[in-house]
Design a protein around this nucleic acid. Sequence first.
DNA 1: AGCCATTGTGCAACTAGTTGCACAATGGCT
DNA 2: AGCCATTGTGCAACTAGTTGCACAATGGCT
Lengths: 184, 184
Amino acid sequence: MSLPHAILTALLEKPSSGLELTRRFDRSIGYFWSATHQQIYRELGKLEAEGYIRALPSEQPARGQKKSYEVLPAGRDELARWTATAQEPKPLRDALLLRLRASAVVGTEGIEAELRRHLARHQRQLTEYEEIEERDFGPGRDTPQDRLQHLILRAGIDLETFWTRWLTQALETFERLPAEERPS
Amino acid sequence: MSLPHAILTALLEKPSSGLELTRRFDRSIGYFWSATHQQIYRELGKLEAEGYIRALPSEQPARGQKKSYEVLPAGRDELARWTATAQEPKPLRDALLLRLRASAVVGTEGIEAELRRHLARHQRQLTEYEEIEERDFGPGRDTPQDRLQHLILRAGIDLETFWTRWLTQALETFERLPAEERPS
DNA sequence: AGCCATTGTGCAACTAGTTGCACAATGGCT
DNA sequence: AGCCATTGTGCAACTAGTTGCACAATGGCT
């Protein structure tokens, strides 16, 4: 139940239309809470109905017509409440690790290519994060907000670093598995 | 769509009843693909209907009666097919990072306690993994299967190590935020 | 003026996962 | 014999997320 709160956060940072939100969910917020445009539009409708946000009056609200939203006080309160609430971390679900485990039983056919694909992807993401760090968090940028944002970005960087290292190690392990001994 | 494949993997490793599977999903397989007993029973029903698994004949299949399943050749084939198939990694969704970002806008009230809770949990998980490593992957255990299993465990260990480090660093950052400058 | 690619908004149907129970069998306790 | 905690199996309703479209507005091109 975090999508509404992700949207409230994004709208507090900057009032936006559905499409603008979708764009921002493809970078920034979406790096750790992804969402499709359909989810976003549906959720905007609900948030408006609940009185947490409202459409900015300036534009006419016809279909296919840009419609921007801003957060109302009730929405900010709800976000603050949610932020302070204890939540159980939800358990990991990682299909690649599962497939690796399956491959120990039914054979490693095809898995190496997948590891490589994932490695390339994580390397790309890591580079992207590092560019953001360089661009947005140089010296002198350290208001409390900057430090929090930087902390979040560091999580992304460290996580991608973990994956690239682990995948590299995994590929080495595969190379050392003598072909004739591989499970099949 | 990975739960059926997680179950097939578990059943290939060892034929089991629903409850035994549930137990194994609370350790082992569940470390990277969690599932509740309700999900598991529902999925067992589907897998049986599709001809991927069958109930072991020995026991009578009444409600509240233990019923064990084994994988049929069609199930093994399906698992091998799935394992070799390319899949997009699904994007990260992490509520804690989202809340941290929200806290930069609506105030950090309550977040520190959450970081501490998460840190304790990740440290506990890390210890558990390290105990498993010591117990199950001592010297001499390096058949191809062992190496694959160990690799998967290392992913868990490294991931928990990342989280404990990052959360420690995050808490330090909070301690250094002068209280009066904290966003509110 | 008519065409059409692009941008933007949204509905509907479906799949996956969660929550809250209900009920059956078993075995120890009185 | 009856009670009741524990173990095991399962249904139903709900919530969240995904997929596949439909349709409106805009603006450049002919």
